[in-house]
Amino acid sequence: MLGAAIPFYILSFLVLFFAYKTITSPNPIHCALHLAITMINLAFIFFGLNSPFIGGVQLVVYAGAVMVLFVMVLMLFDLKTEVRAFSRGLFSSFLKVASSGFLAGILIVGVLMSTDMLDVTSDSVGVGVKATSSTDIALLLFNQYVFAFEVLGLLLLLVAVGAVAVSRIPGGTHAND
């Protein structure tokens, strides 16, 4: 019981702390680095939740590719620490934070009140749930969800073309080819 609780609290503290730093750091690059640490911590939470494959994919895709892209773009811009990082207006800011807090409150109360509605074992992780193998995920992905998978492939192709089209320089780097 304690063995499951200690890693959970350490990891969730780290996740929340670095998520907080992500949204409050005035320097965008610090934001990106903090977000990367958040992602890595989340990957370890996924490992702890018996989903090692998704945890590994989280490391490869989010921490290894998406966040590196963010950091690279920010470094290319060479932004300084922002003088005015947050949006203006005391009252509207208060309203924004308050409504977000209200949402969090609703979510938490909802979670706490619906404890008995879902038929799950609320013991420590892994009781009655075997560690999911990547084979099972693959079978599900290529049988039941194969259409969605193909559509996703098409979407990625579109996005790649679109991103190149949006950010392209006239003439381009390979203009002479």
Binding site: V15, L16, A19, Y20, T22, I23, P28, C31, A32, F70, V73, L74, L79, E82, R84, A85, F86, S87, S93, K96, V97, S100, G101, L103, A104, L107
Partner: peptide, 17 residues
């Protein structure tokens, strides 16, 4: 975590953030 992300989206001015 969701709330933190939401506050970030509402409060920041930098598109990338």
């Amino acid at each position: 975590l969701f709330t933190m992300g939401m506050i970030g989206v509402l409060m920041r001015k930098n598109v990338i953030v």
